[in-house]
Nucleic acid binder design. Structure first.
Lengths: 246, 246
DNA sequence: TTCAGCTCTTTACTCATACAAATAACTTAG
DNA sequence: CTAAGTTATTTGTATGAGTAAAGAGCTGAA
């Protein structure tokens, strides 16, 4: 339990890593599906058989399936059983699904797609943030930036500050759905960063680019913020690709 | 054996029509939450009391809660009960949540936010599609466009064609997460269109703009596609705002 | 043959009940 | 007044019985 060797349940254990059985089963099956161990079209074993195999009650198993179904991963019908749905119906932006995908060693294509989406969304969000940011937003971003500079991305605190920085920007954009999208991507970015750190030290100091972005948003410079964020994402992608190759 | 690898059964999505009890309860509660009948922070009645009140078994009720929990709407813990989470944790881009939101008479702000997101994502997707479209994509788009012109947006077939047109564009962008985002938005757009049609006839012929977009994508004109889609979304927003005011 | 309609059988779905685990609130020792 | 332990309440898990849906197969007629 506490002596857990991996960096599994970091903080906020209630997000999805809760120790409740239905959550664990959902996570395990979700990871298995995302990893391709169960392919779209495959039908899972029957409730009774599979729940016995997993050593859990049918109740817990069914609740797990309900979770996966809510995220679009599976579909259950009487007589035909529970089958994995086509990938196009998966909710790929669901925070849990993203987390599971990264637990299952995501494909390079997937990571590239995510960065492509970041490249579309985040500069636009930064532009909106430059328009709409409040004083509170600015102070929060400033604080996050400061912590980030102090601790660096190699530490837990530093990564949290980085996340808070980006999160505040997306909050400042004042757009609920965009914010939801951001949360998912932010989570994925966190995993990507960890993934990246796993293999090699960060090859570049990210602080200058963050500061440029921060200044642009503070100044209300819409196009400057857009450009700065574009650059930031581009560099993040470059770093990630480097570490993928390495 | 399964034959067509293309379009699956495009029957009515079982989204809301599901007769399964857990699905109905989840939908009802989801709509109630989206409508504000249960506010963030509110705690729902206990499982036993509430399930009796809803005239369903505790099992079915719990599976419904599991669904809502998977979408981030609620959070359950022993002793404290099940409470509605903060709006910032809701998965606002989940297809079901969008559907529920529109069932609950969405706020004007929400619709505007959605269009703002469309304005960010769809032009970029159109640009990517212009780069990456295949011959099959082109023929599908052409077919959809033709049907759309023949039947108009006032008919079910016409709207389906419109949806297929936009869907094909997003498929042509060759980006899984972007595609997932698109599906959600496309669904929401469909609802918006119906919502719009409810009040007044469509004040403008949308076909010319669609054709311009189509031609740009066929020609591989990236910037032209981006501009055309931008215009399309802008006009859709204008129309929607008009009908909201009316 | 071909196909509509009926039956059959498998599977998920629903229900009821009992018990376990977690934890906020309370109680008590220091 | 603080801290440790206890209690009570709520969700979580397990089990078994019975229901309903939907595909497979059979039957019979055109």
């Amino acid at each position: 339990m506490r002596g857990d060797p991996g960096f599994e349940d970091i903080k906020l254990p209630l997000a999805s890593g809760s120790r409740r059985i239905h959550g664990s089963v959902a996570r395990d099956l979700g990871v298995a599906i995302l990893a391709g161990r169960y392919a779209p079209g495959d039908v899972l074993p029957g409730e009774i058989e599979f729940s016995e195999q997993l050593k859990v009650s049918r109740t817990a198993y069914r609740e797990a399936i309900r979770i996966l179904s809510a995220k679009g991963l599976v579909e259950s019908r009487p007589r035909t059983g529970t089958r994995v749905t086509q990938r196009s119906r998966w909710n790929l932006l669901d925070p849990d699904i993203l987390a599971w995908a990264f637990e299952a060693e995501p494909s390079e294509t997937f990571i590239r797609d995510l960065f492509e989406l970041r490249m579309i969304v985040e500069p636009a969000a930064a532009a909106l943030a430059a328009e709409r940011r409040s004083g509170l937003d600015i102070s929060r971003m400033g604080h996050a930036l400061e912590e980030m500079g102090r601790y660096g991305l190699a530490t837990e605190i530093g990564r949290a500050a980085d996340q808070a920085f980006h999160n505040t920007i997306l909050e400042a954009a004042r757009n609920g759905p965009l914010m939801a999208l951001s949360s998912s991507i932010a989570a994925a970015v966190t995993w990507t960063t960890i993934f990246k750190q796993r293999r090699s030290a960060l090859p570049r100091d990210p602080m200058p680019d963050h500061r440029i972005l921060y200044e642009a948003i503070v100044a209300g410079d819409v196009e400057g913020a857009r450009a700065a964020m574009t650059e930031l994402v581009r560099l993040a992608l470059a770093d990630t690709e480097l570490s993928l190759k390495a």
